[in-house]
Structures are given as C-alpha cells and as structure tokens.
Design a protein around this nucleic acid. Structure first.
Length: 304
DNA sequence: AATGAAAACAACCGCCAGCTA
DNA sequence: CTAGCTGGCGGTTGTTTTCAT
C-alpha cells in the first residue's frame, strides 16, 4: 500500500547547505536527472530529506537561475502579475524564466510590498496597473493564452527539427543559463576553498564526487568557468561548469527570445552523458503564456 | 570601532493534489 | 477503491549581511 517513506526524520540534517553537499547533489542530478527525489538522499549519502534536496536544487542550484538585481522590467512584471494572479508565486515565476518562485516571493515581501505601500501613500493609487480592473486583465490574459497556444503549435511545427541537444548549438541565452548556475556554485566554492583549506572528503557513504571535484582547480576569476582538471569520471560535471559565460544577455534580450527558445531551454542536455536538465520547476508551456506575449500586452499598455 | 536595527535571503513547515501499490 | 507517499506550493521563520548611530 502506498509508497515507502521518503526519509526518516531521525538523522536528517537541517540548516544551510554546505558547498560539499551542493557538489554532491549537483553531481548526482547531473548523472541521474531529477526524476526521483526520494532516492537522492539514499544514493548520495546526503543527510538531507528529499524535500530539502529538491528545494536546494530548484531554488539555488538548478541551471538557468538568475540571482539578485531584479531589473526594472522584471519588477514591473512581478507587480503586474501579482495584481493579476495574487500570491501565486509559482505561476508568476513561470513568466520569469530565470527566477524562482522563492526568489520572487522574497523580492515581493522585502522590496515591492514596501515600494507599493510607499507609492500608495504618496498619491493614493499610484501605479497605472491598478487602474486596470482585474476583469480586464483576465480577459486579456485569456486572449493571450489562446494566442500563446497558437504560437506554440506553430513553433512546434516549424522549429522542432532544428532543436539540437548538442552544447555547441546552444544559443547564447542557453550558455548564460548554465553559466549563471555555474556562477552560483563557483561563488560558494570559492568561499569554501577560503574557509576550508582541507575539505572534508566525506564519510564512507559519500560518493567520491566531492573528493574528485575538490581536486580540480576552480578559478573565481573565470566567472564561474571551472578549469577542467577534474578526473575523466566527471566529465559531465566539468561540462556543467564550463559553459561560456562571455555573452551575458540582459533580461530584455532574454525576454524577447521567441517561443522556440523557451522550448529549447526546456530540453537542455549535457553533451557528455546526455542527461537532460529539464526545467522541471516550470509548468508546461501549454499552461502558460510565453513571456513575449505577456510582455507584449504590457507594452501595449504603455507600461514599459 | 562597537552596537543595535533593518533588510535581505535561504531554508523549513504544513498543506494539498495527484499518484501508486 | 483506498491508504499513504511524493512532489509542489505558499507562508513563515531563522540567519546573515548591511546600514545607521
């Protein structure tokens, strides 16, 4: 009956993740994908519950995450979508492909709430979006969803053959997708190297991933590009960190990518092992309006 | 330079829907 | 059909960092 319990509560570690744990988790997911979170603690030896592993991955380690410094456009987008959708952060996050729901939620709670409050104090209802009734938004959204579905089916029929899983064919935005994640990890690894000159190589139950990786040399000056001095057994891991970070796109550029780019982003694959890093935290495109369309009608409103 | 307050962020908790044995 | 687990989501809390005095 049912499934076996995901993890026993005894001996489960809590609190901030260490770089070592991150490496183990990333390494494991690189190899096995994100299909079964329940097996992650068991197979990696991480003393974390599956839920914690999933959260760490989706909110911090997952490729494609952009952190900090919300652009003005993103900010407006969040404000608009929050007005429309309420506190449905996952839904809002689906329109901001590089942001996690947690990040957006935090940003809303710490920045935007206050900002809006301030604005309302100054001139009553300050923001133009608030003059648009919810009903109007919903009607327009529904129209755009229809348009999006049409665009999606067009994109699928036209672009499908050109999709490539080879990293060489990745567009700059995709490179950036990986690079931004590599930045995250390189940053924390950098700190780790500073604070722990003799990294713990882990208990017996751990995979040798952490050990192997720490033997490599990480260059913080490379903006997240790890040197490939790790052992051949971790080629996939190397590749994960070695994507070119040179051509960072602004969110404006990214948001103007077509539906087909979004579809490509949803099926990234590492060249060496073929493991697909699906953007699993995002809902299917069938359920969402592509960013460009949302943006279009926001632009139509003269809000940007 | 020291200290307290505020802000920012990461992670946990609890609930729920869907899935599986 | 059903009990119970998983994964996802939103709310909340705890910790760290930054800023003001």
């Amino acid at each position: 009956m049912g499934r076996p319990p995901c993890c026993d509560k005894i001996g489960v570690k809590k609190g901030p993740w260490t770089p070592e744990e991150d490496i183990i988790l990333v390494s494991y997911i690189q190899e096995h994908g994100t299909g079964n979170w329940r097996s992650v603690p068991t197979n990696t030896g991480l003393l974390r519950c599956s839920k914690s592993c999933r959260l760490r991955w989706t909110n911090y380690l997952r490729p494609g995450i952009k952190r900090g410094n919300f652009t003005e456009q993103e900010e407006k987008m969040i404000i608009h979508l929050q007005a429309l959708l309420g506190n449905r952060w996952a839904a809002i996050a689906s329109y901001l492909p590089q942001r996690t729901d947690n990040d957006i939620k935090n940003y809303w709670n710490t920045h935007l709430k206050k900002k809006l409050k301030k604005g309302q104090k100054q001139d009553g209802v300050s923001s133009s979006f608030q003059s648009v009734t919810k009903g109007q938004w919903e009607r327009r959204l529904q129209t755009d969803i229809r348009m999006a579905k049409q665009a999606l089916s067009d994109a699928l029929s036209l672009d499908k053959p050109s999709f490539s899983t080879d990293s060489k064919d990745l567009k700059p935005s995709q490179e950036n997708t990986y690079a931004s994640s590599a930045e995250n990890i390189s940053r924390l690894l950098e700190n780790w190297m500073k604070t722990s000159p003799e990294p713990v190589t882990g208990a017996d139950h751990r995979t040798n991933s952490a050990e192997t990786v720490t033997q490599g040399s990480f260059s913080s000056s490379d903006e997240g590009a790890f040197s490939a001095e790790t052992t051949p057994t971790h080629q996939g891991f190397d590749s994960f960190f070695s994507f070119n970070n040179g051509s960072c796109k602004s969110s404006d550029d990214v948001s103007r990518e077509s539906v087909s780019v979004e579809l490509q982003n949803a099926s990234l694959m590492t060249p060496e092992n073929g493991v697909v890093f699906q953007d699993e935290s995002k809902p299917d495109l069938g359920d969402q309006v592509p960013l460009t369309l949302i943006e279009k009608w926001l632009l139509d409103d003269g809000l940007f």
